[in-house]
């Protein structure tokens, strides 16, 4: 078994397996949430709350009153830096768009690679800062479970290996590409069964909160 064969497996059957498990797990997770339903609202509603739900998704993503100082500064700044960076890298690197094109038939313009590169570095630095914060803050340390370290590593591995693959660092490209795609597959497989599902549930939770708030009160 040489690395060329490993890469072939990872790009083919391995990817199929990972995608299958990911969709399997996410379908369970989301259906469980949706089928559970909400408590019946007996009061007359002010509005349907649908628009308010979407507003809340947006407003909760912005600093309260435009002042980031009102949130824990460190987590806020690095948390945002990491998530924005990850978003750009995932969706605007040309080879990643090719994956979407092959799987879903969807494609969109890519960003120039040096721009994506900058976001990758931002993400990597932010993730390391967040880990350091987690390890040094007594409060965070108290709240941290082993799963938090696992999901950190699962997210960090594709970022770092992708960066190394692009810049041909340390190992031959064939190796780095195998590690990179393999680490993404591991992320996909464990995604539905860990806190990583927050990437989906976050929006559902915010929408519900906003919807309920929108239904309450008297129509003016």
């Amino acid at each position: 078994m040489n690395i060329e064969a490993v890469l072939l497996w990872i790009r083919g059957p391995g990817l199929g397996l990972a995608l299958g498990i990911f969709l399997f797990g996410m379908a369970i997770k989301l259906l469980e949430i949706f089928l559970l339903g909400r408590k019946k609202n007996l009061a007359a509603v002010r509005s349907s709350g649908v628009a308010a739900g979407f507003r809340t998704i947006l407003s909760r993503s912005l600093p309260p009153d435009g002042n980031i100082l009102r949130r824990p500064r460190f987590t806020f700044i690095f948390g945002y830096a990491f998530h924005i960076g990850l978003f750009v890298v995932m969706f605007f690197l040309a080879p990643h768009i090719e994956v979407s094109h092959a799987l879903l038939g969807l494609s969109w313009p890519a960003l120039p690679t040096p721009v994506v590169d900058v976001f990758t570095i931002i993400s990597i630095i932010a993730m390391m800062a967040l880990l350091w914060h987690r390890l040094t803050s007594p409060l965070l340390k108290y709240l941290t479970t082993p799963q938090d370290y696992l999901v950190w590593a699962l997210t960090f591995a594709p970022l770092l290996s992708g960066y190394m693959a692009y810049h041909h660092l340390l190992l031959p490209y064939t190796w780095l590409l195998s590690i990179h795609i393999g680490s993404v597959e591991l992320l996909l497989i464990l995604f539905p069964f860990t806190k990583l599902t927050h990437a989906f549930t976050l929006f559902i939770a915010r929408w519900y909160t906003g919807m309920m708030a929108g239904q309450k009160g008297v129509q003016s």
């Binding site: 083919g12 199929g16 995608l19 299958g20 969709l23 399997f24 092959a102 799987l103």
Partner: peptide
């Protein structure tokens, strides 16, 4: 970067 085989079946089955 594209998959080397059709992953549609595995994905559909999983879903």
């Amino acid at each position: 970067s594209e998959p080397s085989v059709n992953t549609g079946n595995a994905a559909a089955f999983g879903l």
